[in-house]
Design a protein around this nucleic acid. Sequence first.
DNA 1: CATCGTATTATTGTCAACAATCCTCGTATG
DNA 2: CATACGAGGATTGTTGACAATAATACGATG
Lengths: 227, 227
Amino acid sequence: MTLGDLGDLQPVAQPSTAELIADQLRSAIVRGAIEPGAQLGEADLATRFAVSRGPLREAMQRLVSEGLLYSIRNRGIFVTELTFDDVVDIYNNRRVIEGGALDLVLDGRREQTWQDLGTAIDAMRVAADRGDAGGVSDGDQMFHEILVAGASSPRLIRSARTLLVETRMCLGALHTTYPDLHVQVDEHVALREAIRTAEPDVVRKLLGEHLHDTVDRLRDQGLGGQE
Amino acid sequence: MTLGDLGDLQPVAQPSTAELIADQLRSAIVRGAIEPGAQLGEADLATRFAVSRGPLREAMQRLVSEGLLYSIRNRGIFVTELTFDDVVDIYNNRRVIEGGALDLVLDGRREQTWQDLGTAIDAMRVAADRGDAGGVSDGDQMFHEILVAGASSPRLIRSARTLLVETRMCLGALHTTYPDLHVQVDEHVALREAIRTAEPDVVRKLLGEHLHDTVDRLRDQGLGGQE
DNA sequence: CATCGTATTATTGTCAACAATCCTCGTATG
DNA sequence: CATACGAGGATTGTTGACAATAATACGATG
């Protein structure tokens, strides 16, 4: 008995409980539901997730190795609080990672990536039109995620993911950094067009400035000296 | 009661048990003591580490999030096996990460980093003189770790660590890739000198080629098509 | 003989109880 | 009054036992 054409079906991935809890926790932290510096009481959280402390602890260990949490022995696990130095480091890393991804994209997948980025642009525009700052921020993240995905490098994608999570962490602290939402959209539109047509050096520079601008805005608006 | 000058003492870090076990496991995997694809039996490992299954599972979750292990629900946790595509991806990422670190180093810490790299060079030379391939490999890793440390970016350092671990994983599979150990040393010496004196573009290019060479050697020697 | 169904066994997933550590608050003492 | 000491409570660290799932081997059936 031979099988017919079933399309490209992929193996079902049954995520472990630890992974599920880790995802929940991560989004809770990003959303700001748990504020930086706060301790994650095991008993409390365990009942909240309706699981025992065992799986919860496993999940927390994952986030520790991602750098979202830190643990002090016999005291507990806490949400990492980002200093301004961290913000700088995060954006430095984003420049490195996304810049590296960009190089790979420009080396043969420009058109495809340009097309994929359309989804994010559309989402941003719609959100901006109705003044939905959160939606624009979502679109922003989507844009950069798609950009990195264009490099089709599993490791770059993972690095970018954690960096984007950290980005949202500091953004969450001071809600929307752009004066006008449409400015944010336009910046990404320009970047997208450059990816299709401009010289590599130019695109690269544009991305660098785009990320540099954000860190400047963050410095001006919120955390001046140090956290 | 005021305290006198105690030097720059830093907070004592009592690592959690999970972290300790994770370190042990990581080195065991890198060393090749556990071969890729192998399942990590919990009961067996737990007795081996003289702990219960709880802490062990926590440690394994860390390595899962690092990508060294992967877990299949209700089946177990396994050591990830690197395909040739992974090798390419690892070296692409190393180019990105170490290249990014290099940019930061060249931007104001050239002399200092050049000096720091001396340690690694010395270690490599000594090892090469007595034909100790493993020692040279250690020095190689140290070199790249110091290089990235020069950028003093916690996140770049962590990314680089993970990548170096993965590098050693595939290297471990086919023991020493250099025809002559001294060639390997000389390549690093050239790179180090360039970091002190050469134009940024040149240094960057040199590093890129250095990493590219390695992947070529790996393709020639061991894994041709896939896996 | 190949295939399907089933019992067995081993391994993972989960939990609740116990031990160890730390924080807090009250008390004693100089 | 400030400090040191100690009891109590709460939280984390660890363990062993139990439940659930999947791999294996064996026998039944077409």
